[in-house]
Design a protein around this nucleic acid. Structure first.
Length: 492
RNA sequence: GUCCCCUUCGUCUAGUGGCCUAGGACUCCGGGUUUUCAUCCCGGCAACAGGGGUUCGACUCCCCUAGGGGACGCCA
């Protein structure tokens, strides 16, 4: 049997370090077995998926060196590899489930479902579909479908007993069927949900081993039900531990840089990042800590993957990155620095901004230090302003973070429009509103134009600087965070 | 709240019943080399969550408790 593994990111937002983590282990395992590693794009969420984000995934994974044998952009024998291009396949399979009775149509409105959920929660029950449409008369169902009444397809779940399954790392896992919800398999827009798509695709793409995050353990029973309903053999499943924040919660961008682009733009070498990721929940048989992906592949042993959630520790990553940088020859070092940022392509957006402000070339570097390097560390004193209080600054920065988080188009003009409308909504003069942003981003009040700087730095670096600025201003308590969230929502 | 997963130094980890006086790495602290700094070298601090079993013998096996995490969406 050929080993085939996959990584299946959804193209929503920025490429995540967790995606690289899963890609690394899937790729290393497949290659260690002489198998193939597949990239599949899970873009079944029409509202959140974007072509730009999909492209960003390709770029980020290629930067990391985690290339794939089959994928949407390079093709392969089991395509298409983009789920939005497989709708007909899912529809056909959903019909099979409907015919066999493994699934049923549900006409419940969002309002009714919300109400049911609320009632269940107030009774302190686990929110769960209440079976309202489970036993509809087939003729009625057909008639309502013919009338074009919106509906979804749901999975029929056993009322009693336990679901048992084998996890390659954790042994047998037993989950009571009562815990499992009648999952929606096909949404009212005709798109499948993850659960249907993942099973159908993993089967049709002949995936032999599924290495994925442990967040999927609790939905495994649904997948098992689907494999059984289709009469398909199940791939071996391995639930890898989740990367953690220093406070041990699941790695999140609010608490840690999680964007691959943050690491790329900050000047981490991909081989260092990958080496570090290879140490998360894994150790080499001979305990060596410095190794390449090829070396990891040559010695890989799935049984050495551990199950405790590892904290992503920037201090050790930094040390390791430094180690890899020092190991370069001076020539390689210069090439890598040029690849990173000191090249025409990367410098060209900055050049026109600096040129008009330059009398002698010696004036250039101090102006661009914060664009090409880390900006100076801030204290509350840096934000002092004639009319804005510390609280005002925190509120501005907080709201700016929230606003920029949801901004799709990370271009100068779009950034301006977003920030301007926010300042107007908060009834603060643009000139004042921008002051803490200038400090947060560049470390000083007099500097190159803000929106060009934001555009140049990119989402990940900007988020990280804004957040650290808020920390410098005393940070935001849980309570204040909630207040700020309400205040923000009242504005937009 | 319900269900599931997890639990060795602050962090990443080694350890598969005796090799453990629990090893390595990062961080931190001390010292050395270096015109400074960094590198490099040497040294140090620091852990088996708790309680019961099983066993001649438990970090290792079992149970309970505690703690942490995840899931509970027409998101993935």
């Amino acid at each position: 049997m050929t080993v085939r593994t996959r990584v299946a990111p959804s193209p929503t937002g920025d490429p995540h370090v967790g995606t690289a983590y899963m890609a690394l282990f899937n790729r290393v395992f497949a290659k260690s077995q002489g198998g193939r590693f597949i990239l599949r794009i899970e873009d079944t969420d029409q509202a959140r998926s974007s072509a730009a984000s999909e492209q960003a995934i390709y770029d980020a994974l290629r930067w990391a060196g985690l290339d794939w044998d089959e994928g949407p952009d390079i093709g392969g024998d089991f395509g298409p590899y983009r789920q939005s291009e497989r709708l007909e396949i899912y529809r056909r399979h959903a019909d099979r489930l409907l015919e066999s009775g493994a699934a049923f149509r549900c006409f419940c409105t969002q309002e009714r479902l919300d109400e049911v959920r609320r009632a269940q929660q107030s009774r302190r029950e686990t929110p769960r579909y209440d079976g309202h449409c489970l036993a509809l008369d087939p003729h009625e169902v057909a008639a309502r479908v013919d009338r074009g009444e919106p509906n979804v397809v749901r999975l029929r779940v056993p009322e009693e007993g336990d679901c048992r399954f084998e996890d390659g790392l954790r042994g047998e896992i037993v989950i009571p069927w009562r815990q499992v919800d009648s999952q929606v398999l096909v949404k009212s827009d005709g798109f499948p949900t993850y659960h249907l798509a993942v099973v159908v695709d993993d089967h049709l793409m002949q995936i032999s081993h599924v290495l994925r995050g442990e967040e999927w353990i609790s939905s495994f029973p649904k997948h098992q039900l689907l494999y059984h309903a289709f009469g398909w053999p199940m791939p071996a499943h391995y639930h890898l531990p989740l990367l953690r924040n220093p406070d041990t919660s699941k790695l999140s961008k609010r608490k840690n840089p999680t964007g691959l682009n943050y690491y790329r733009r900050s000047g981490y070498l991909p081989e260092a990042l990958l080496n570090y990721l290879g140490l998360m929940g894994y150790s080499m048989p001979d305990e060596r800590e410095l190794f390449t992906v090829d070396e990891m592949t040559a010695a890989f042993d799935l049984n050495r993957v551990s199950t405790g959630g590892p904290v992503f520790d920037l201090a050790k990553l930094d040390w390791m990155n430094g180690h890899y940088i020092r190991a370069l020859t001076p020539g390689q070092f210069m090439d890598r620095v040029a690849d990173w940022a000191l090249n025409r392509d990367n410098l060209s957006p900055i050049a026109p901004l600096v040129q008009t402000r330059t009398e002698r070339f010696i004036d250039i570097l101090p102006q661009v230090d914060y664009l090409l390097g880390e900006r100076a560390k801030l204290t509350a004193a840096d934000f002092e302003h004639k009319t804005l209080s510390v609280e005002d600054c925190r509120r501005i920065l907080d709201h700016a973070v929230r606003r920029l988080e949801t901004l799709d188009d990370w271009q100068r003009d779009a950034l301006y429009t977003a920030i301007k409308s926010l300042a107007d909504a908060m009834d603060i003069k643009m000139r004042d509103f921008l002051s803490p942003l200038f400090i947060a981003v560049s470390g000083r009040a007099v500097t190159l134009p803000l929106f060009d700087s934001l555009a140049y730095l990119g989402r990940d670096l900007v988020r990280s600087r804004l957040r650290s600025a808020i920390e410098a201003l005393g940070g935001v308590s849980k309570k204040e965070g909630k207040r700020l969230e309400r205040s923000y929502r009242a504005l937009v």
